[in-house]
Simulated scan of single mutants.
Amino acid sequence: MGLVQIEIPSPSKRQSSRFEVFFALGFRPLYLLCAIWAVISIAIWIFAPSYLMGQMNNVWWHAHEMLWGFVASIAVAFLLTASATWTGSNPLKSWPLASLCGLWLIARIAYLIPGNIPFFIAGVSDVAFFLYAAWALAKVLLKAKSKQNYPLAIALIGLGLANASYLITVYIGRFDLLRTGFAIGMLVMSYIALLIGRRVIPFFAQRGAGLDIPRSEKSGRYQLWIAIVAVACLIVGLEEVTGIALIALGIITLYQLYTWKPLGVCKVPLLWVLYIAYAFLGIGFIISSLYFLPLQLGIPPATFVHFVGMGGFSVMIIGMMTRTALGHTGRPLKASKLMVVAYVCVILATVIRLVAIFVPFATPLLHIAATLWIIAFGAYVYQYGPYLTKPRADGRPG
């Protein structure tokens, strides 16, 4: 019988520092920073708007920070983390990752400071954040020849360029063009959300609920090409074609959700929150089409922005931030009671915010929606802050 070799840890082995742990993978610092910002930015927007003294006025600051400062930045965190799994190479860690987070933080602070110089610093830092992340992602994807994921690096570049366009429009005072710039950013982000959601939700459902469901690869290809067409048509001013593309996008998205057996995930919070987010996206795309088609229905633009951005992106984000953080920190894949409350709070906040668009007594509803949102992401910071700043619970590296 052979001898079993038992490795005794050497006393000289150095434990990873808190800095090395925190900046080991993109999700750790960016999930935490973005969740904190989700709380602070909404608190400022609803309860302390007097602090908004920067170049962007109240509405356009709020729109910008929700899309690029929060939603798109979470997408960066997810892609930097997922690509390490896809390729076996970590795109950014240690000081390079800390530098990326520094760019993000400089932008968030500088946008609040009056004057052209802080606005310029914020804009350069913000755009550099997305382009730096795109470069890091592209580098590992190209090295691994992960061709199916090349579009994600291009999409991050698209987010950076859309951001730059939005900021330039603010700087030159062309507020009449801001809605188009923002809509382009929303559609680029929709492309990323659909690509990620269509890939991971069936996978998570298969593992978490034992469901045998299709990966929707064929419809997914149609879906992504239609999203690209929608973006291109909006850029060149073909808004009617964009509207038609959004209807098709919504129908495909809802059909995919139907084939994923939604009733089979009702008892698994980590899954039903993602299914609800995907439903918001599908319905939101159809509602969004009404904004671009010449139907004169008088639906406010805030409807599609909050249906897709709050119900689709943000509900998916809180589901993804919990599920992926549990997996990557070596913890059981089960949502805590606190996180289930957080899921419900974000969904209720979305519904109340949408109702507030159409009623005359909107202010109390806005306060309720903001409070629910703050509770939800504050709960995430409270529970997941220690997870994200400490080594993996199972003792594995990473």
Rank of each mutant, 00 (worst) to 15 (best):
S125G: 10
Y171V: 03
I247G: 01
I113L: 14
G398V: 04
A75V: 14
A72E: 04
H367I: 13
W86K: 06
G123Q: 02
R396Y: 08
I252M: 10
P91L: 12
W86T: 08
T85S: 15
I375E: 01
W225M: 13
S216P: 01
T363Y: 11
M321E: 09
K139M: 10
R221T: 10
Y258F: 14
P391Y: 12
G312P: 03
H62I: 04
M66I: 12
I74W: 06
L270P: 03
Y278T: 08
A164W: 13
I74T: 07
W95E: 06
A342C: 11
S216K: 01
T389F: 09
L270T: 06
W135V: 15
T322N: 07
A75K: 03
I287L: 15
I375Y: 12
A376T: 06
F129P: 02
I276H: 00
G264K: 13
I42N: 00
A134F: 06
I213S: 13
P397K: 12
G264R: 05
G250V: 02
N149H: 15
L3P: 04
I247F: 07
L152G: 02
G173Q: 10
A342Q: 08
I287Y: 03
L290P: 00
I109T: 08
S314P: 00
L33C: 10
V59W: 09
L234T: 13
R174A: 12
I117Y: 13
V340A: 04
V59C: 00
F313Q: 02
L271D: 07
S146C: 10
L348F: 15
I184T: 09
V315R: 02
L366S: 03
V59F: 14
A48T: 14
L238R: 10
T329E: 07
A162W: 00
I172T: 13
A107E: 08
P360F: 09
M56C: 11
G197Q: 11
G220F: 06
A133I: 00
L271E: 09
L270H: 03
A342V: 10
A155F: 07
T324D: 04
F22P: 05
T169V: 08
E20P: 04
Y111N: 10
V351A: 15
I196T: 11
L80E: 02
L67G: 05
L80F: 08
V355P: 02
L297C: 11
G158V: 02
T169P: 01
W135G: 00
S10D: 13
A325C: 10
L92W: 08
C266R: 14
